[in-house]
């Protein structure tokens, strides 16, 4: 018998359930408990970068919006730098911009929104330039293990065409499931997205 390796096993995932808001966004559950709360607003008045709204829905296999879904996003700042010690790239760090937020979908419409800035292009660890993107993590009742996907930006056509992750997707039609569409509404920049959990338009999800 060879020596045992003795690695531990990761703790098994379980669904976040329909009442995830109690723990993660108590105001949505209907009460006020913490002095400080996390939210869907990533920006402060000092944040550098183009202000954008990310707005979208998560649809089930019938095309119906999930009205009890929770999304978290994780992104770089406008210089393409993540606020984390493992990111040693050259972009300027913004100490006040954590780059993370969470949002629950509206209980009626299923709409999810984030107020943030457009991230810069990222230089990955192999030195390749990656198109600007926002990392998305999705949990809800009926989702047994959190789903990882990304949002890219429709006005970054050249960068998207060269992006090493988008190019891993074999079918060009599936790449488009990760592109948020830019519009302007009342002077605000809005990127709209739809995440399809199933069906012919199923969003690309990652094993990260």
């Amino acid at each position: 018998m060879p020596q045992p390796l003795n690695y531990l096993k990761e703790t098994a995932s379980q669904t976040a359930g329909p009442y995830v808001h109690i723990g993660l966004i108590p105001a949505m559950a209907g009460f006020d408990i913490f002095e400080k709360n996390f939210s869907n607003v990533l920006t402060t008045p000092d944040t550098q970068g183009e202000r954008i709204t990310l707005e979208g829905k998560v649809l089930d296999g019938t095309g119906t919006p999930l009205r009890d879904v929770l999304l978290e996003i994780w992104q770089a700042n406008a210089s393409g730098r993540y606020n984390h010690p493992a990111d040693r790239s050259a972009g300027a760090l913004s100490e006040e911009f954590r780059g993370w937020g969470r949002a629950g979908s509206d209980f009626e419409s299923g709409l999810v929104t984030f107020e943030t800035i457009k991230p810069g292009a990222i230089v990955d660890r192999a030195g390749r330039t990656c198109a600007p993107h926002v990392n998305v993590w999705i949990v809800a009742r009926g989702i047994n293990i959190g789903l990882n996907t990304r949002l890219y930006f429709s006005d970054e056509e050249a960068a998207n065409a060269a992006d090493p992750v988008l190019n891993l997707i074999e079918q060009p039609s599936r790449r488009s499931t990760l592109i948020a569409k830019r519009t302007e509404r009342g002077g605000k920049v809005v990127y709209s997205f739809t995440i399809n959990l199933q069906g012919p338009e199923e969003t690309v999800f990652f094993d990260v």
Binding site: T15, D60, G61, T62, L66, A140, R141, G142, I143, N144, L147, L197, Q198, E202, T203, F205
Partner: peptide, 8 residues
């Protein structure tokens, strides 16, 4: 609940 909410 997982039936319609699971990627295929």
């Amino acid at each position: 609940s997982s039936v319609l909410r699971s990627p295929r």
